[in-house]
Design a protein around this nucleic acid. Structure first.
Lengths: 149, 149
DNA sequence: GGCTTTGTAACTAGAATGGTTACAGATGGA
DNA sequence: TCCATCTGTAACCATTCTAGTTACAAAGCC
């Protein structure tokens, strides 16, 4: 019943960069949009940089920008970059080896976990950061239309 | 990067009951196979009972058994019964409402979360406790063959 | 009535998450 | 060359979650 919000924030960050069209963003600007601390953002940016999804530059006038085009970054790339573990966890303690169920349940549930994770990956691989930007725009235009009426 | 093992344990428990063919199991017996404390098991059994997947009886000679046949309990039933939350979490703090991305990213990521959760459900709905028992047996026979050679 | 077992509350230890401060190192510009 | 700026990262803290544990009331069989 607990997962981290790192994935959602990472997508948010990349979407901001796609939105801001190649202009480097400072961690403080991003933090303001996400409503958190700049260090939290920089930690996530480090993960994204390791996966070559963003490029960061230190120093004055530095910041981070996308390392690829928005349509070439899938949510699966992001999911793997921030390494949020699997959908569920296996047993903490190994079950009894003297029980016919206990001795093999970990293997079987491991297979189930693989199937589930694979299904998640399949969904995420079909969605790119560009798609997220496009899904965002209708909301923005709707707001614009409201003002007009 | 953290989920609970409640789902894996719940499947383990139900599989034990399917294996033991309608003979009521005490929480202490189950705890021995899972290698944990009986109270941990009883807590999970309460969730499973609320979802009418098991029936428990207090008192001497009490215990728990399946409320339906093993082939009529899917892993999706179990997943929902132990309510392990979704695959990932949305933002802890709401993003800035003054940013065109921040103001709508929660909605969009909520939709993505729904898609992913739905894919997980689709996989889990196809696997029953009976299937888990069947997946277990080859391992057991393999162990038997080893002793024979 | 007495023994057994579940249901549940209360407390604890340990881990994970995110927030915060602090600072070294890189970078660009005056 | 010096300074202001920004990232990368360590260290620490508060909060939350998980599961382990003890304890006990209530239910149910013999």
């Amino acid at each position: 019943m607990s997962t981290s919000s790192r994935f959602a924030v990472a997508v948010h960050v990349l979407t901001l960069m796609a939105w801001s069209d190649d202009e480097p963003l400072k961690s403080e600007q991003v933090a303001e949009s996400v409503n958190t601390n700049p260090v939290v953002i920089r930690r996530i940016l480090c993960d994204l940089a390791e996966a070559t999804l963003v490029v960061s530059q230190t120093g004055a006038m530095g910041g981070s920008r996308l390392a690829r085009r928005a349509e070439e970054i899938t949510l699966l790339d992001v999911y793997q970059a921030v390494n949020c573990g699997g959908v569920f966890s296996l047993h903490r303690q190994h079950p009894s080896r003297h029980c016919p169920v206990g001795v093999n349940i970990e293997t079987v549930m491991g297979e189930v976990l693989d199937e589930v994770n694979s299904a998640v990956g399949h969904v995420l691989a079909k969605i790119t950061i560009r798609d997220i930007v496009l899904r965002l725009r209708p909301c923005v235009s709707a707001a614009g239309n409201k003002r007009k009426s």
